[in-house]
């Protein structure tokens, strides 16, 4: 018996419930039915196939309660560390570049309760937890260090995340700037938030070529110089703590934008105390 499931939170939860009933079933996953069909054809499988998560409209909160019991969100409420709830946990793991959704389903079906996902003793639980942390970290780094700029009136940022978090980041940016259209560009795709300002859906994915044709109001943007001045003014020389600063402004994460790269350079090299302009000051 093969369970073919869709790689969505809903699909994962439904498959987890199914796997508890049929623990010997094999798992196969895909983003849509065509991909699943291709995989089945490629593997030449001829066993029974049960499709899960491709049509259902079940609520994720109901499903998670069936998987972990009605107190599923208790752990998150009482945990002092800001852990994501299990629905968000699954979503984050699915976004990992090396995520194996079958492994995630098995982990969930073997976990009796939510705390074991976080302080898991099994190897599988630890692996999923690590994936969740890595995705969360790279999302947080984007929120910290990405520096969008106005491109024809759209607050636009070009990113190259390791995991599939472009839409998450776009929603965050749109929430932060609810009065403007925002765009997150990765390769040849662009995720547009608050698209209604430019005659599109509120949230939509387009090609970056299409984005190039969009017009909105023009807003001038001459901020980098001011930022440099501000950044330099905040440094307390007698308290310089290179190790600490380097830890928080890591090299890899800072390459997310030119502005944070410059900040990182100053963390590394310090801020020059003497600039040409200083000679002309009182």
């Amino acid at each position: 018996m093969i369970i073919g499931f869709r790689t969505t939170v809903e699909g994962v939860l439904l498959t987890c419930l199914k796997l508890r009933q049929l623990p010997d079933a094999q798992l196969m996953f895909a983003e849509d039915l065509e991909e699943l069909q291709r995989k089945i054809d490629f593997a030449g499988l001829e066993t029974d196939l049960e499709l899960v998560g491709f049509e259902s409209a079940a609520s994720t909160t109901e499903l998670i309660a069936r998987v972990f019991g009605k107190h599923w969100n208790r752990h998150v409420k009482f945990s002092r560390r800001k852990e994501p709830d299990p629905i968000h946990f699954i979503d984050l793991v699915l976004r990992h570049a090396d995520c194996d959704p079958s492994e995630l389903v098995r982990t969930l079906s073997l976990s009796e309760d939510v705390p074991s996902l976080f302080s898991g003793k099994m190897q599988l639980q630890k692996r999923c937890y690590r994936c969740m942390r890595e995705v969360n970290l790279s999302y947080q780094r984007l929120c910290m260090f990405a520096r969008p700029a106005f491109v024809r009136g759209i607050l636009t940022v070009d990113i190259k995340p390791e995991h599939r978090i472009e839409d998450m980041f776009c929603r965050w940016l749109a929430r932060k700037n609810p009065d403007l259209p925002v765009a997150v560009v990765h390769g040849d795709k662009a995720w547009i938030g608050n698209g209604h300002f430019v005659g599109l859906d509120r949230f939509i994915v387009v090609t970056s070529l299409f984005m190039g044709n969009l017009e909105a109001m023009n807003v001038s943007d001459e901020v980098e110089e001011l930022w440099d001045v501000y950044y330099d003014s905040q440094m307390i020389d007698s308290r310089r703590n290179k190790k600490h600063a380097k830890k928080f402004q890591p090299k890899a994460a800072s390459s997310v934008s030119g502005m944070s790269m410059k900040d990182r350079y100053k963390v590394e090299r310090g801020i020059s105390p003497c600039k040409l302009g200083d000679f002309f000051e009182i």
Binding site: Q140, C143, M144, F145, Y230, Y231, Q234, M235, I236, D237, R239, R240, N241, K242, K243, H244, A245, F248, Q249, S260, D263, K266, V267, G270, I271
Partner: peptide
């Protein structure tokens, strides 16, 4: 909330102060 930069002294910058 979200820190956006860290000064060379290691303190974070979250707000325009």
């Amino acid at each position: 909330a979200v820190c956006h930069a860290f000064a060379p002294d290691g303190r974070c910058i979250q707000l325009y102060k």
